[in-house]
Write a protein that binds this DNA or RNA. Structure first.
Length: 542
RNA sequence: GCGCCCGUAGCUCAAUUGGAUAGAGCAUCAGCCUUCUAAGCUGAGGGUUAGUGGUUCGAGUCCACUCGGGCGUACCA
């Protein structure tokens, strides 16, 4: 529809050349009285043409060559909006399109042939995934789905570092617990990993090796075993949510393949570094950042900025058209440095989009559950998943703008009732399925022959809500978010439940009943498609 | 102190990226099942969008300042 309007506005440029100078936008008005689609073009032009927007709107309308089969009415309203009303033929065409495209309805070819990469989770293997990682994981995977829906081929990637200080502390923590098990007196430092899982890993080692490891270095078998077991569990936690990464990228490979030296050398050759206090500094000020930063410490070890830049360079050089990073808010101050670094080596940093994930607060009713990886009192993603189930986990994490703090209330997610939005949406799907089964006994068929009988307000509203789906996917993509898919599905489910109440099928005259069946089936398809983007199941019965 | 993010109904969140009367759910109150799942529907109350200025046809959205919260602000990642 937008394409159609764009094309007739394009034609009108010959009469109103100023139309070329504005960015033409169409949107669905909030209120039905304002039409099915609307544009503010006249208001944008009023400044340029120095004329009353309503007068300009009238000129625009006069110069549009409108197909009466598509648009039934055009009006000028408010300060100068031009509102368009669809014809019934066009509205029924939407149902036919849905029934025809089925599981492909809502997909677009807009970015067909383009490649995207989504990097998410990227937790180092020092402990089980927490609910915070869960939010990152769910939104990352769902956004990857959205990219696929607009046409991209997507690689899901996990970046990790199994060297460095954190991993040393991990090995030390496991060894201490091991020594504890074999009966040695230990004192366990506060800044070591406190979780029970450390004791479990130590116990596994004890079961397998007895006390023969007491003289082994913590950096060896203790660290390696911990890493393997933890990574195994992380992957399993993700799989339980339907998430599988295609690529696991080890930061260490950047060193092995010489990418770090290459990058550092590039910076040096291009005079972007200097030495101070025995460290190498990157001239970030020259690159538009507020402060220069150390990239190689006086110990010779690089800081995280260097591998991060090298890593992004490697990814960009793989040929992606779009790269998405999903970072925790603790990275929010540092990624601009990385972007500046990428730009400095001549790569297109505009291809990289960053989604900053804010924190998750877990409540159980009124009680706030505090979380820290180091301390023992956190909820793991597995615990959350076991408690509320995959569908609720995925729906709840997707439901909020990732850029806002969110409260995950366990007591609501656990409820199998109308307080829980995921059940409300799934129930609409199950309800339609149940109807489709029921009408078979009444010998009714889904038919698109008499869709023009669907004139009830609740029918029209449902159809127009269905039509909105394609745009919601696009808007989710453009807005770098998943939450509007949830809002949309909730709205769609509500529109269906209302229709279901006012527009019965059994006991209605056959032609109308069969048209309503077609509409119901179309609604079922769209709900299922939307849920599949979220990675939430569409149950046939509940 | 400085930087980034945030502040919307009692609570949890939306608001088509500057558009028309700021919307949903929960909670509260009042209704609806001899009819395809009441896991549903209908209605009511609840707002100076933290505050003050500014930008313009038009601001929850942009700018400045103030207040409040989160995260950074390391030669940790």
């Amino acid at each position: 529809m937008k394409n159609y309007l764009l094309s007739i506005f394009k034609e009108a440029e010959s009469e109103i050349p100023a139309l070329k100078e504005i960015s033409l936008a169409f949107e669905k008005p909030k209120v039905a009285e304002h039409g099915d689609i609307s544009t503010n073009a006249a208001m944008l032009l009023s400044k340029k043409l120095k004329n009353n927007p309503r007068v300009i709107a009238q000129q625009i309308v006069n110069s549009l060559k409108i197909d009466q089969k598509v648009i039934s009415k055009t009006e000028i309203a408010g300060p100068g909006f031009i509102n368009f009303f669809f014809t019934k033929e066009y509205v029924t065409y939407i149902i036919k399109k849905i029934l025809d495209k089925k599981e492909r309805f809502g997909k677009s070819e807009r970015y067909a042939g383009k490649k995207a990469n989504v990097e998410f989770v990227s937790a180092n293997p020092t402990g089980p995934l927490t609910v915070g990682h869960g939010r990152n994981a769910v939104v990352g995977d769902t956004f990857a789905n959205i990219l696929e829906w607009v046409g991209y081929t997507v690689d899901r990637e996990y970046y990790f570092n199994n060297a460095g200080r954190q991993m040393r502390v991990l090995g030390d923590s496991v060894k201490l617990r091991y020594l504890e098990i074999i009966g040695e007196q230990i004192s366990f430092p506060e800044d070591y990993y406190q979780g029970e899982y450390i004791k479990e890993i130590a116990m596994h080692l004890y079961i397998k090796y007895g006390d023969s490891l007491k003289n082994e270095s913590p950096e060896g078998i203790f660290k390696d075993t911990a890493e393997n077991e933890i990574f195994f569990d992380i992957k399993k936690s993700l799989e339980n949510l339907g998430i599988v990464h295609k690529i696991f990228f080890n930061e260490y490979s950047l060193y092995q393949e010489g990418k770090m030296d290459e990058l550092l050398n590039y910076f040096k050759v291009h005079n972007l570094t200097y030495e101070k206090d025995g460290a190498v500094w990157l001239k970030l000020k020259e690159l538009g950042q507020p402060e220069d930063k150390v990239i190689v410490k006086s110990t010779g070890e690089p800081t995280y900025r260097l591998p991060d830049i090298a890593y992004h360079a490697v990814k960009i050089n793989r040929g992606y058209d779009l790269l998405i990073d999903i970072f925790g808010s603790d990275h929010s101050a540092t990624y601009p440095d990385v972007m500046a670094g990428i730009k400095a080596i001549g790569l297109d940093s505009d291809k990289v989009k960053v989604m900053i994930q804010q924190f998750v607060t877990i409540t159980d009713g009124n009680e706030v559950v505090k979380m820290s990886t180091r301390k023992a009192n956190y909820i793991t993603l597995d615990e959350l998943n076991n408690e509320v189930g995959k569908d609720a986990v995925r729906y709840f994490f997707n439901m909020y703008n990732i850029n806002s703090h969110m409260v995950f209330d366990l007591s609501i997610a656990k409820k199998k009732s109308d307080e829980n939005p995921v059940f409300y949406v799934q129930y609409a799907h199950a309800r339609i399925n149940s109807i489709l089964n029921r009408v078979k006994e009444a010998h009714l068929e889904i038919s698109t022959n008499n869709l023009d009988l669907l004139v009830h307000d609740d029918e029209q509203n449902l159809i127009k809500t269905l039509f909105q789906f394609e745009e919601e996917v696009e808007l989710s993509f453009e807005g770098l978010g998943t939450h509007r898919i949830c809002s949309y599905l909730y709205e769609l489910a509500a529109a269906y439940h209302r229709f279901n109440k006012s527009c019965r099928i059994l006991g209605t005259e056959t032609k109308l009943a069969e048209a309503r069946l077609a509409l119901s089936y179309a609604a079922m398809i769209v709900i299922k498609n939307g849920l599949s983007i979220l990675g939430v199941s569409a149950p046939e019965e509940m």
